[in-house]
Design a protein around this nucleic acid. Sequence first.
DNA 1: CTCCACTGGGTACGTTGTACGCGGTTATGT
DNA 2: ACATAACCGCGTACAACGTACCCAGTGGAG
Lengths: 249, 249
Amino acid sequence: MADAEYVNIWMRPERPARGPKPAYSRAQITEAAVRIADAEGLEAATMRRIAAEIGAGAMSLYRYVPSRDNLIELMADRLMGEIDVTGLPSGDWRADLTRYAGELRAMWLRHPWIAAVQRSLPSFGPNQLLLIERLMGVLDPFVPIDENLSLVGLLNSYVEGTVREEISSAREFRLSGLTESEWMARSYPYIDQLVKSGQYPIFTKIVTEARQPHLSRDEQFRYGLRRVLDCIATAVPSTPAGDPRPGTR
Amino acid sequence: MADAEYVNIWMRPERPARGPKPAYSRAQITEAAVRIADAEGLEAATMRRIAAEIGAGAMSLYRYVPSRDNLIELMADRLMGEIDVTGLPSGDWRADLTRYAGELRAMWLRHPWIAAVQRSLPSFGPNQLLLIERLMGVLDPFVPIDENLSLVGLLNSYVEGTVREEISSAREFRLSGLTESEWMARSYPYIDQLVKSGQYPIFTKIVTEARQPHLSRDEQFRYGLRRVLDCIATAVPSTPAGDPRPGTR
DNA sequence: CTCCACTGGGTACGTTGTACGCGGTTATGT
DNA sequence: ACATAACCGCGTACAACGTACCCAGTGGAG
């Protein structure tokens, strides 16, 4: 009942006032959970497994965290902290957003399980909040806040969308225990059957021509990112708002 | 062991040659599962629940589907079938993509649980395949296949990204059993505390100014979509490839 | 020194996906 | 026509999950 009072994990104090010193901490638990999720996926980070990782009993975790879902919120915010936003905004919005996009992508690739966490309402943990401040600060001088949200949303969508695709191939191999070529050999009959049927000319083109990309994933990402930034540029006046804007529309 | 031979759900025949007539079908099972997921979320669509829905025993489902994960693949492809692609490509790529984007978004909103399905390697079910053919056919005459993939990927990212955000708010309410205003009242103290601290000016701006949007979600979507299409337009020559292109680059 | 709010953690419960095996049914080979 | 084997639906059973509840022990506040 006292528990139900805190809807928000971020408002619940980590430790009550009195009593013996706790043996563990939220940060330590979160760290262990992230370590396990990195190595074996989010579903491997069970309460028992996390507890074992830090040498605790399973039920001890509930002294620090109300539920597994809340722990996952903590993990997600911990990840946001990996995105370095020092020096943002720098004044050059394009450079800032390029850096941010690169770091976001790198973070996702380091922690692919982030794709599996269902964000319910945006969970405003400390790292998330700092990120919002710095990131939205980049375009804040140029566009109204709704437009800013919309543009940053577009950028985030692009990064998340592309990296999701990138992740999912790797994920399948990881948990099926197959290498990529083994998987290819296994699923070849199906693809081949589709191609041979002649009913799917464009699908065939994709499989036969685009399967061996002449660009690395990194280059593909940067190429697409430039396009997105160009798109954003059309909505960003070159001088901060408040100045009498030239007819740049 | 015979089971392991089919890596792909789409290659495994629904029914073997001999034996008594099955009482159910994949389609029927998938339909029931979708119905439950629509009403109560994907996690409510357990094997027992689905079986009960069609009046079967839990283990009977495994005569039709090798695992729950595979059933979810079936469900996902079933959803792709809701996207109407008749008459695509029509010749007007902008109209085609606008229509597609609208239908994709509507489908997601009808079946929000789609956000929770982890696509591993793209699962090429029949509906997915048809969609690929028609959708990629829209830009196929204009751009090379890699570029096509990239542009369609951008569009998909935009739709998925925005609709994910839209979904997640509603989801929280659904499963916490709170109305939006109740939730607001509950989480207000935290938001308020952040605002009052004065440390997060931009976050404050978002919460106080942008929380009451002057545009409906639909209008926001269409507005952002136009921007994305403009962005795509810069990469699409106005005449089909093969023609000597004017210096539009 | 006493008290009690707190600690870590063992036990137990309900729910999940699914392996296994049963007795009944039916298309097929003869 | 009939034996056979392949299939059916499904009851039972099990391991793993999140977590409610309880308990003995601990250490700071009075």
